[in-house]
Design a protein around this nucleic acid. Structure first.
Lengths: 149, 149
DNA sequence: CGCTACGCTGCCGTTGACGTAAACGTAAGC
DNA sequence: GCTTACGTTTACGTCAACGGCAGCGTAGCG
């Protein structure tokens, strides 16, 4: 087990026993803290193939790449994509330029996704506009109530 | 993509037996067709208090107001809001200008929701930008493959 | 009168995205 | 050697948002 000389150089500082992360990596708890999600959620994302942190024995090692992907996952979620969709999008990102067929497929995917996002953008604009209207109405009502009450 | 495999029959107005909609109203089936959702979904939305069509006896009568609300519901869904959230937003729309306290609360709500939407807008922009980048990469790769292969 | 088309109300099933709990491993520190 | 902190897996629970079906009503046609 300890045959692998770990990259953690002489750290051994004064007593912080917080399961120190080796190299430039992070523990699952640190990542969870950083992104404001639970350990369970992170493990779930791994199960779903959204991230695949390395292992030191059983423990997960989160490298920068994983944290970037995680950020993308969360942004995808904010945009309302399902985890499944997010995975295919992520797969799009790091697809190797294989054959032209695959590239064409990827381009088509991009177009489809973009169309969705543009629709969402329109929805967003409209809703924001209506919020503005609503707010104006509110302010009017408020002014009326204050001046007459 | 409708799940109900039901081919449209002869659609003659007036004399036929298509459970004629009275006044300027529509039947549940017509509304479902119009919005591309199922009857089940519409009833579910009513259960959740998102719409409340009138009744002629047992049957639902959909008036313009209901269809407007339904459109808002679907837009909200496209934006990724839960039905619960959508209901509170809808409630915001037709809140009576009661007391100033309520109005202030409503304004606060509007601000909160708007902040969310603005966040989403940023997410959207970023993702769209990355799609552009990705597409460019794809096109480059494609050109390279075609010219060298 | 029965058939058919359309509608209604339950109620259970399903899927996605986790939460929660149980039961355990392991390394640090006293 | 025991505790404590952090981690692991597996299994089951939950909540939203419906789908699907059962069982029934009813309006109009022939």
């Amino acid at each position: 087990m300890d045959t692998t000389a770990e990259a953690g150089s002489g750290r051994a500082e004064g007593g912080t026993r917080t399961a120190e992360p080796p190299g430039g990596t992070h523990t699952i708890a640190q990542v969870a803290e950083e992104f404001g999600i639970t350990l369970r959620t992170i493990r779930w994302y791994e199960d779903q193939g959204l991230i695949s942190p390395e292992r030191r024995g059983q423990q997960r090692l989160f490298r920068p790449r994983d944290r970037v992907r995680l950020a993308l996952v969360l942004r995808g979620k904010r945009l309302g994509f399902s985890l499944e969709e997010i995975r295919t999008i992520l797969d799009m990102y790091d697809a190797e330029p294989g054959e032209t067929g695959q590239l064409r497929y990827l381009l088509e995917q991009i177009h489809r996704r973009r169309a969705e996002l543009l629709q969402r953008q329109r929805d967003l604009q409209q809703t924001l506009a209506e919020f503005d209207e609503l707010e104006q109405r509110c302010r009017d009502d408020l002014g009326r109530l204050e001046s007459s009450g």
